[in-house]
Design a protein around this nucleic acid. Structure first.
Length: 769
DNA sequence: GACTTCACTCTTTTT
DNA sequence: GAGTGAAGTC
């Protein structure tokens, strides 16, 4: 045990060895919070205070859960089996699978991902003749998820106006439809679990008694429903209360947009009468200048629990800041800097390029590709989200639960088999009339379309019959063939990648079966029906069935059901080119929890970072600032920031001002390395930018256009230039009209808005540094 | 019914 | 720019 606790600093040690009471650990970035969390679990078990089955550890991402499990197995001689370690969604899924009857779900219920949820809502709107202009599907989806995240069913949502009343009505219809189809969305997983525990006392008491220690990672990201679920599980206010050990950092709360409520931290402190509050402020990750920047920036947020990171590492290198002329040039600069880092010996995988939104990766990817540098993009199009993979999954879903209409519609005519709009409409009418699924409605459709539908049903059932005894990977292989998907893509010109992805699915299934402990040859369908005979079922209280704590996944789920859950819940990290040493590209959001020797934060422009939509939301800019804080604190040794004068976004060029966050960084930690070039588009003055970059492609045209426009206005002002106005403050020239003494400039003054000023009259200053 | 083309919108982050 | 949905053509 000495081993376990050595090398912990006093605060970490105190946190790890706290008595079994509720505790709140304020853990700054890079302060070793995962270490504290896992060491505490190990310590609790090694000191005999709790058995593995008494532990529940909740995270938000699958990555974090996996990491925790790995670290624990390294620390503990005992197996991590029996502990409940996972994401909120993963654990709730497991819980609902175990108690599917008690929460009125079919044993093979399936999970809708956001895509499926949206398409389902669209269908619902259509079926009910709702004007989708007035009630956009996305809004309704947001409305529903929001309600669920707060733990509210339709009958408990307050409607303030007719629009909301209608939305509530649709919410109810939506829930009914889900129930008919035997599908649940993400939020529903949590809400069902919560309601079941709420309603079912013996069950609740069983779990309360079981989980002596509940540990929550990234507590600042919990939403109201998740917090309430934790309260219920911990048995807050009860005699047998479990200890809730919450680790979080209010400065890293970046998920308010999906219902996260930082207020849960102070609510927790208050409601659980937390006496043990420990701050971890010693940072082991970043050099001084980087940490100073982070501290300085985040100090601009008002509502904070208060925390300042310190480090023993020296100042290190200053933060380098670069102003590029365009997004292309920004990418070029990143590549040059990355190359020189690698010359100094940096590993490619230790260099991260971060951006605010996924759309920004395109330009950088392009440049990296052209430069021949290997890179990996995280997030974005994930494996299980790819169209061809979703198609294959849909066939599997239909075989496990034919009433999943989303799956049905996805593949009923893909590959095409002569079932068109009219057949589908007839089918939907029949299904609506009898209140049944599309699959179940097939017998009610007569005529020609009826017979093609029938053969589709036969296809699905034939596949099920054929694969009845096969193991999951073999089953997947058969389905890929039988569905005609493989053949379809073989005939397609650009189908090679897709076929590869489909074949990859067999591997994914093989790996999954192994990792989850399903027997190598276990039939894909078999599993749940056998659990009663395994003797793992206990009966308590009013005949409530409780499968014992240690029941592994393979007892409550068939390999197929489990695999389908996995596909929805894990989405598959963009198939990481394992082993490949590559540059890491990702959004700031997905960088959370990671660290790199060198980090580039790109696109630091007003409107992009902070994002323009943030100014509309309450405390939106504060959240953007926290996001920036997360980005900065990812870096160990080197930090780069960049912004550009012009950027191609959504098909048009935009001219943004540099991000306000630059003004919130400590000047002494920064080094501005952009060349100060006034008019690099004019031929006479050679800029230090490589003019070669304008020699080809569409950018060349844009550059010429801009140069022409600028030239016609004589020396002085050009588009993209930063200016200052006595009244309006700082701005960026977005456009210049006319010439000579008539020249007028359209200037984006950010806070003061867009203005058109007469250049011969307006008093403008150049903004230099 | 299948397939192509065109016009249109919506562009933040994700379990 | 991409993805969607509607309309047009075979």
């Amino acid at each position: 045990m000495q081993n376990l606790l050595h090398n912990l600093n006093p605060e970490q040690l105190a946190a790890v060895t706290l008595p079994p009471q509720s505790a709140l650990i304020l853990a700054g970035a890079g302060s070793g919070k995962t270490r504290v969390l896992t060491t505490r679990i190990a310590w609790l078990i090694q000191t005999g205070q709790v058995s593995p089955a008494g532990i529940m550890a909740v995270t938000f991402t699958n990555k974090a859960a996996k990491e925790m499990t790995t670290r624990l197995s390294a620390m503990l001689p005992v197996s991590t089996r029996g502990m409940w370690i996972g994401t909120f969604h993963g654990l709730c899924n497991r819980f609902l699978r175990t108690h599917y009857r008690d929460c009125a779900l079919p044993q093979t219920f399936q999970i809708l991902d956001s895509q499926d949820q949206l398409s389902m809502i669209k269908r619902l709107l259509k079926a009910n003749n709702v004007d989708d202009e007035k009630y956009p599907a996305k809004n309704l989806m947001y409305f529903i998820n929001n309600a669920k995240d707060q733990g509210l069913r339709a009958n408990r949502v307050e409607a303030h106006d007719p629009i909301e009343r209608k939305m509530v009505e649709l919410y109810d219809l939506y829930d009914n439809q889900c129930q008919r189809e035997g599908v649940v969305d993400f939020a529903e997983l949590l809400l069902r679990a919560y309601e079941l525990l709420q309603r079912n006392q013996p069950l609740r008491e069983h779990y309360q008694a079981r989980f002596k220690h509940i540990l929550v990672d990234e507590f600042q990201d919990t939403n109201d429903l998740q917090y309430n679920l934790l309260k219920l599980l911990a048995g807050q206010g009860q005699q047998v209360a479990g200890a809730l050990f919450a680790v979080g950092d209010d400065d890293q709360s970046i998920y308010a947009f999906r219902g996260a409520n930082v207020g849960n931290m102070s609510a927790f402190e208050r409601e659980f009468r937390v006496e043990n509050l420990i701050k971890l402020e010693q940072n082991y990750r970043s050099h001084g200048h980087i940490l100073d920047s982070a501290n300085h920036l985040i100090a601009n947020n008002s509502k904070r629990l208060g925390k300042n990171l310190r480090t023993d590492a020296g100042h290190g290198e200053p933060v380098r800041i670069y102003e590029a002329s365009s997004d292309l040039e920004e990418a070029q600069w990143i590549i040059e800097e990355a190359k020189s880092l690698m010359l100094e010996g940096a590993l490619r995988s230790e260099i991260a390029i971060l951006y605010r939104s996924n759309a920004q990766s395109r330009v950088i990817e392009h440049a990296l590709f052209a430069a021949g540098l290997p890179y990996t993009v995280y997030g974005g199009q994930r494996y299980f989200q790819r169209a061809e993979v979703k198609h294959a999954i849909a066939y599997l879903q239909l075989m496990d639960n034919p009433h999943n209409d989303s799956a049905f519609l996805r593949v009923v005519n893909f590959p095409t088999r002569g079932i068109g709009m009219r057949s589908i409409e007839a089918l939907q009418a029949a299904a609506g009339q009898y209140g049944i699924s599309l699959y179940a409605a097939v017998p009610y459709v007569a005529g020609k379309s009826g017979s093609s539908l029938n053969s589709f049903v036969k296809l699905v059932e034939g596949a099920r019959f054929e694969t009845g005894q096969l193991a999951l990977p073999e089953m997947v292989r058969v389905v890929l063939e039988a569905s005609g998907l493989l053949q379809h893509y073989q005939n397609e010109k650009e189908g090679a990648d897709r076929i590869e992805n489909l074949e990859q699915m067999v591997n994914a299934a093989t790996q999954f079966v192994q990792e989850e402990g399903f027997g190598q040859g276990a039939p894909a369908y078999l599993g749940p029906k056998t659990y009663a005979s395994v003797g793992e079922m206990l009966v308590e209280g009013d005949g409530v069935e409780i499968i014992d704590a240690d029941t592994p996944l393979n007892v409550v789920m068939s390999p197929l059901s489990a695999f389908l859950s996995h596909a929805s819940l894990e989405a598959g990290d963009a198939q990481a080119q394992a082993g490949q040493d590559a540059l890491q590209l990702m959004t700031v959001h997905s960088a959370k929890g990671l660290e790199f020797d060198a980090v580039f934060i790109t696109g630091l422009e007003e409107g992009l970072f902070p994002h323009e939509s943030s100014s509309r939301e309450m405390d939106g800019v504060d959240e953007e600032r926290r996001l920036m804080y997360v980005a900065i604190t990812r870096a160990r040794k080197r930090l780069y920031m960049s912004f550009t004068q012009s950027r191609m976004l959504h098909g048009q060029t935009r001219y943004n001002m540099k991000s306000r966050f630059f003004d919130e960084l400590p000047e002494e930690a920064l080094k501005w390395i952009s060349p100060r070039v006034q008019s690099h588009w004019f031929g006479n003055k050679k800029s230090s930018w490589d003019d070669a970059k304008f020699t080809g492609g569409s950018d060349n045209k844009i550059a010429q256009q801009i140069a022409q426009k600028a030239a016609s206005n004589g020396p002085g002002w050009r588009i993209g230039e930063s200016v200052a106005h006595a009244k309006f403050g700082e701005g960026v020239i977005v456009n210049i009209e006319g010439g000579g003494s008539n020249a007028r400039a359209q200037i984006n003054f950010g806070k003061a808005g867009m203005k058109v000023l007469d250049l011969s009259v307006a008093k403008l200053d150049r903004v230099g540094r």
